[in-house]
Amino acid sequence: MDDHTVKAILFDLDNTLIETSRAGAVAMQKVSELLKTTLGLNDDIIHIICDKFKQKLYRETFDPAAGRSIDEVRVGHWKESIQEAVGSRPAVCSSPSLPTECYYLWKNSRLEVLTLSSEIRTLLKELRVRHKLLLLTNGETQTQREKLVATDCEKFFDAVVVGGEHAEQKPAVSIFRFCFNLLGVEAQDCIMVGDSLDTDIEGGFNAGVRATVWINNTGGAVPDDVAKPDYTVPTTLHLPAILAELK
């Protein structure tokens, strides 16, 4: 390899290599059907419950030292969401196990849908011939490790780094440096590929990677107050053309 060749590629996982948002939508639909059957609620109330859960998930802070598992925390999200939306209706009070049922239906349905497509698998195999590949994903350890098992994707990478297992997650420079050291490369040898401007693109930029690639699968514009990606593509499958430019 010459000094101008990209030696390593860092990939985000969710909505970069796997369609987590789509899987989440499928899982929410199944929970909605459970709530409708169990509580006899109308679609508007069910939508409120599911939206409240998604908000709690988005704002979630998890501390393993607190003595509760991530499963217990998220069962609590469903319990609170149902109570906040419907209060103490008799049907709710008579279904104490409903939050647990909602959580495991949501969790297991999402994992069942998550997959590494054949096109992405082929791409990763081809890229690994000439590049070191590292998967760098933010998130709570159990949750992200379950996704890795469900998608059987670890075998396509030279290393996997889960943010929840480190003191800092993306966009912290420290976790990028950890990745560079793990692969035995310099920042300028690498590119960062991900769907989040706040974590993947800003983190890669601050860490000094050679280029950042934003997977913009929603078609939105880049806000003025974030780091600008060097490349923007609708899918990771466009990566070979970018690598050809970077030679």
Rank of each mutant, 00 (worst) to 15 (best):
S95Y: 08
D44S: 11
V213A: 11
R59S: 09
V185K: 11
V6Q: 01
K170I: 02
K228M: 02
V173G: 02
Q169Y: 03
G24Y: 02
R68I: 15
V173S: 01
A159T: 14
Q188A: 05
A211H: 08
G208V: 07
S118E: 09
G219D: 03
Q55A: 08
K147P: 08
N181Q: 12
A85R: 02
D2T: 13
R128M: 00
L57W: 06
K52V: 01
Q169D: 13
E126L: 12
V6Y: 02
C179L: 09
G40K: 06
A8M: 10
F176A: 04
D189S: 15
I18N: 00
G204C: 08
V233I: 14
K7A: 07
A207G: 02
D63G: 05
I70Q: 03
S94A: 15
I70Y: 06
R74E: 13
L148Q: 10
R59K: 10
L136Q: 01
C102M: 10
A241I: 00
H4K: 15
L105M: 02
T143N: 07
L17T: 08
D71H: 05
T100W: 06
K125V: 08
F62A: 00
T122V: 00
S88M: 07
A187Y: 05
A211V: 04
Q55D: 06
P229N: 05
V185L: 14
H166M: 11
Q83T: 12
V26Q: 04
K56F: 12
S21Q: 09
V6P: 04
G184I: 08
S117Q: 01
L133C: 06
E19K: 13
V222H: 00
E60I: 12
L114P: 09
T212E: 07
A66Q: 06
R145F: 04
K52M: 11
D189A: 15
D225C: 00
K228W: 03
V209R: 10
D12S: 06
N108S: 10
L136C: 04
K7Q: 15
A65W: 11
K52F: 09
T20Q: 05
L135A: 11
I242L: 03
T212L: 12
G24S: 04
Y231C: 10
L105P: 03
V226L: 03
T235E: 02
C153R: 00
N206A: 14
P229C: 13
E101C: 10
R145T: 06
T5I: 10
K132A: 01
Q169T: 14
L183N: 08
G40Q: 06
A207K: 01
K247T: 11
P229D: 07
G40V: 04
T61K: 11
L136V: 03
S94T: 14
L39N: 06
T218Q: 15
F176L: 03
V173M: 10
D63P: 06
S88H: 08
K54W: 06
W78F: 15
F205T: 13
F157E: 05
A159G: 07
T37I: 02
S94E: 15
T100K: 13
A85H: 09
D189I: 15
G67F: 12
T20K: 02
P99T: 05
P99A: 07
P171C: 10
